[in-house]
Design a protein around this nucleic acid. Structure first.
Lengths: 152, 152
DNA sequence: CATATTTAGTTTGTTATCAAACTATATGGA
DNA sequence: TCCATATAGTTTGATAACAAACTAAATATG
């Protein structure tokens, strides 16, 4: 059980947490929102303005294809608008709609208790300590990634 | 960027690490093995013997349906055998094949440098410190999960 | 200026994952 | 013994994610 290398055990634990956490959040999210969909809405409310799909792909570290799919689903729910970029014939501009803002508010309300429980169970200090180490791992993996396949 | 609750930021970081780490490992794994497939093979080599599919689903915290899929792919590659359980007409017994053992050895060799790099970049102590906190988060999410939907 | 290269976005095909529905066998209680 | 319930596995129908191939528009180079 513990003959596995340390880094492997950490990755393992991270994988399971990601899965359980994602499932727990999606169980309470309204409007059949998924975590990635919520995260995009949250971004627009917090930072406002408009973004291109490839901006968003870069920000959230997913491929362009993945972002295309997430945005299409959000647009189908009328939570974002996709407009042609007037400055670039290839580009698009994404912005949140009023319905999207409302869905984000409802999501925050639904998700807050779940997050609060985690914080209570693990301790705010422990979480705060975790964060920098996680960031280092992320930074390493990000840098080690060879040719960023597709403007991820 | 940091108005998000602590627990949310941690979950976010974990999600990205999971994704980047998974992709990095799968890039080097032989025989088109995926991480879940490798993890199952690794388990059999480390602990030996036979397991039922639902044992494996429980051990790796995935649903039975997910485990069915992973086992079918491993069987197609001839890396495991699936036998009827002589004691239970509903059950199956899974065990690794020689080819499976060989694939696991090759995988370990391929994956080791990637893990070593992570360990070097983050530091063994930092990883060791991370582990208990991660375990607490996992334990909480595991416990908070309502009716374990399907003998997950 | 014309062609080559890069960039923006989409599409395709594969795997993982979940929940829920379904089949078949086992077990428990009346 | 018989029926109800629980358990083992599979299947179905979603979403997310990747890589790779593809279209179209923009930029760079000769």
């Amino acid at each position: 059980m513990s003959q596995d290398p340390l880094a492997f055990r950490v990755m393992n634990e991270i994988g399971i947490i990601d899965q359980l956490g994602r499932t727990a959040l999606e169980a309470v999210l309204p409007d059949d929102l998924t975590v990635p969909q919520f995260v995009v809405l949250n971004h627009f409310v917090r930072l406002g303005g408009e973004r291109s799909p490839s901006d968003l792909a870069r920000i959230f570290q997913v491929t362009k294809g993945t972002m295309t799919s997430t945005l299409q689903r959000l647009e189908a729910k009328r939570f974002i608008d996709m407009l042609p970029d007037p400055e670039d014939g290839r580009g698009k501009r994404v912005r949140i709609t009023d319905a999207g803002r409302a869905a984000r508010e409802a999501s925050i309300a639904a998700v807050a208790p779940v997050l609060a429980q985690i914080e209570a169970a693990v301790g705010a200090e422990a979480l705060a300590t975790l964060l920098p180490a996680l960031s280092r791992i992320r930074a390493h993996l990000d840098a080690a990634r060879d040719g960023p396949a597709q403007t991820r």
